[in-house]
Structures are given as C-alpha cells and as structure tokens.
C-alpha cells in the first residue's frame, strides 16, 4: 500500500495519519429498494486493480478523502476531497 498520501489540503503525508473506511459507495436514497440498501450496508467487491475508497485524514485536516488506488500495483492515481466528488 502506498506509503504517502497526497492530501489535497495537507500535501504528501504518511499513511499512518489516515484511517480507511472502505469502498467509496454512495448512500442510497431513503426510499431506495431493500436490495440497494442491503448491498450498500453489506456487499463489497474485492477488486484486483483500480479501487476507490474513503480515507479519513484523522491525523491532519480531518477531511474525508476519496482515494483512487490500484490494489495490484499500489499506485495511487487520485486523491480528492470526498465532498468535491
């Protein structure tokens, strides 16, 4: 996994400053189907390759970030504020 995360607010910082929540999923609408809610709460892909996750810069700016990384090569292609996406 990447050693440094380029936080859009703080610059490159060691990964120990961050916590990973998991896949960057969009919360379904309140009236979405039962299946959509079940998938959101419980079902996760485990991709080999590009993957988007929510990371929290809890040891820095305390912003939630969307980190796009490749699980096979560890390359981080994009880090942006989760609110901006």
């Amino acid at each position: 996994m990447a050693s440094l995360i380029r936080c859009p607010h703080c610059g490159p910082r060691p990964r120990e400053e961050f916590t990973i929540r998991g896949a960057a999923l969009k919360r379904p609408a309140p009236d979405a189907s039962e299946d959509a809610w079940f998938a959101y709460v419980y079902l996760r892909d485990n991709p080999r390759g590009p993957h988007e996750e929510h990371w929290h810069h809890n040891g820095g700016c305390r912003r939630w970030l969307t980190v796009a990384r490749d699980t096979a090569t560890h390359a981080v292609s994009c880090v942006q504020d989760a609110g901006a996406s």
């Binding site: 929540r21 809890n58 305390r62 504020d81 609110g83």
Partner: peptide, 13 residues
Amino acid sequence: LRHLEFCTQVHWP
C-alpha cells in the same frame, strides 16, 4: 466525531 464528519462531508455536504 468521525461519523459526524463523514455525514457532513460525504453524505450531506
């Protein structure tokens, strides 16, 4: 706190 930050920044910015 982390949960509230997630709610305000990601769910309902």
